[in-house]
């Protein structure tokens, strides 16, 4: 066990590529670690990924505990959970973070159960702060914020007496810092303590779908809602996106109607985005949609209904018909471009 306090991040990898969410979590762990005077460490499982792991230092990861075992090349529940449990028992981190991906949400509860520690699912904000309970004050409690009740409430969860405190964190919500290539992480290879009996799942086939669009990295997004469902209006929205070099996104009704693929959906059951500019075209702004885009730097809302909730979170509001407004936007852009 290290003499310094640790904030640990589970490093997700698939086919030797580190998951984007793990980089986001290292950056977020860095912000938490600062307040705790702790250091950021990673735990990784796999085979032949030492170099990729060293590069996590660019984002502020100090040390990676790496269980190198060919049988761990691909994720399965029991051996992954068991290996992470042994590393946590050895290192005794204060906090452990996982991406709220299918992998993170599969293994983290097993790990929490084995360690009998607190786990909060699908967090969207993390802080270090005070927590008082029954006259006892915890000065540096790990505050885990998450939407619940279908997004209608925000709950702050703590597990002050649990060691460690663990959370899964929604991909795309934590800010990625600029990497610093001069820093590298120390990669410590750990002995695998798994036997063949631990491998309970046989993976026969992995079928990956190519994403048609990757909204989580887009800087400019033009999103179409049910107000743009007719073919002419949707074509206009698409034209605006092409003109200003934006990615096209959508609210759920358009995806449900089969007008755009699910990769385009922004929101609670779609992608979380935080672009520089988000132009919401004919989107009312229901909670499940806002959950995925409220962190955008600038939001322009175009809607014919002046009372649409989207106007409450927008920075610029245009009350009007898309069919009249968008052509003016395209013309104004072309005039100056």
């Amino acid at each position: 066990m290290s003499d310094k306090k640790q904030v640990m991040v589970f490093i997700e990898q698939s086919e030797k590529k580190i998951g984007a969410v793990s980089l986001e979590l290292i950056c977020e762990a860095g912000r938490l670690a600062k307040k705790l005077s702790a250091e950021v460490v990673g735990v990784a499982l796999g085979y032949g990924i030492g170099e990729e792991l060293a590069a996590l230092g660019h984002y502020g990861c100090k040390t990676v505990y790496y269980v190198e075992d060919e049988r761990l090349s691909h994720f399965t529940s029991n051996p992954y959970a068991k290996s992470v449990v042994s590393i946590i028992r050895k290192q005794q981190p204060e906090i452990v973070l996982f991406g709220a991906t299918t992998t993170g949400r599969d293994m983290a509860p097993r790990i929490a159960s084995a360690l009998k520690c607190g786990l909060t699912a699908d967090c969207t904000e993390l802080q270090i702060g005070e927590y008082k309970s029954k006259g006892e004050l915890f000065e540096n409690a790990f505050l885990q914020m998450r939407p619940a009740f279908g997004g209608n409430i925000m709950a702050t969860i703590v597990s002050p007496e649990s060691f460690p405190s663990m959370a899964t964190v929604r991909p795309g919500v934590m800010q990625l810092d600029t990497p610093d290539a001069s820093r590298t992480a120390e990669v410590l290879v750990e002995e695998s303590d798994l036997s063949d009996e631990d491998f309970l799942t046989e993976v026969i086939e992995v079928v990956r779908r190519e994403k048609t669009v990757n909204l989580s990295v887009a800087q400019i997004i033009v999103a179409a809602g049910a107000g743009a469902a007719d073919p002419e209006t949707l074509a206009l929205v698409r034209k605006l996106a092409v003109t200003i070099g934006a990615e096209l996104a959508a609210s759920r009704p358009l995806v449900d109607a089969g007008l755009l693929s699910h990769d385009h959906q922004v929101g609670q059951t779609g992608t979380t985005v935080r672009p520089n500019l988000y132009i919401a075209c004919g989107i009312s702004g229901q909670i499940q949609h806002r959950a995925g885009m409220v962190e955008s730097q600038r939001i322009i809302a175009i809607n014919s209904d002046p009372d649409a909730p989207i106007f409450r979170i927008a920075h610029y509001g245009i009350v009007g018909d898309l069919n009249a407004v968008i052509p003016k936007m395209i013309a104004a852009y072309k005039e100056k471009a």
């Binding site: 520690c117 309970s133 997004g151 209608n152 409430i153 709950a155 409450r312």
Partner: peptide
């Protein structure tokens, strides 16, 4: 081990 510290209703601030 987990406790709810606080619950906030999501209200849209203008």
């Amino acid at each position: 081990p987990t406790k709810v510290k606080k619950i906030e209703n999501v209200v849209l601030a203008v």
